[in-house]
Amino acid sequence: MNTREIVDTYYRLANSGDWDPWCDLFAVDQTMDEQLAGHVEGRETLRDMMKGFPQMYASFANVPVHIVVEGDQAAVVSHISARTPKGESVEADVCNYFRIADGLIVYMTNVHDTVPFAPVTGGA
């Protein structure tokens, strides 16, 4: 897959809740700087982390609004709409940056306001 196909697949799998194949998009030694979860190293660490994701959200959608691809890098502005099992809503604009090597995501970071995620994180 090329960079655009990987990015498109990332969002398609996330929005369908297919977390194992989503994790397979990442290199074994991937590095992620995730706004809420912090620094995550390794695909299997990410896979273990994602096992709890379905318990955090009753529904989850991360819809790309604008995608820029240049070679092995991509930046995506997207909007998250989610609902917790208690019915609390999460609405947040996000920017993700991806770096791809050998058809896998080797680095990803996301940036967003953390306040909308308070129902999930327990923050104020």
Rank of each mutant, 00 (worst) to 15 (best):
F53L: 14
A37P: 03
V40L: 08
L104G: 04
E41G: 02
D33M: 14
V77F: 07
R43V: 06
T109M: 14
V63S: 05
F26W: 12
D29G: 06
H66T: 12
V69K: 01
D18Q: 15
A74D: 07
R83I: 12
E88L: 14
G103S: 12
P21I: 05
E34S: 09
H112I: 00
I100N: 03
D102E: 15
Y107I: 04
A61N: 01
Q55L: 09
M50A: 13
P54I: 10
V111G: 05
H112L: 12
H112G: 10
I100R: 03
A74F: 05
E88A: 13
M32R: 09
A75Y: 04
V76G: 00
C23M: 07
M50G: 02
I105D: 00
D72C: 09
G71Y: 10
Q55C: 08
V77W: 05
G52L: 00
V76A: 06
V69C: 10
N96K: 02
V65I: 09
E70W: 07
V111H: 09
I80C: 04
N62M: 14
V65F: 00
K86P: 00
I100P: 08
A75E: 04
P64G: 00
V76S: 01
G42M: 06
D29E: 11
I67C: 08
V106H: 11
F53V: 05
W22C: 08
R99W: 03
L36F: 05
V77R: 10
D72M: 09
W22A: 03
D24K: 13
V94K: 03
D72G: 04
V76M: 03
D20F: 15
C95G: 05
D48L: 15
E44W: 09
D18R: 14
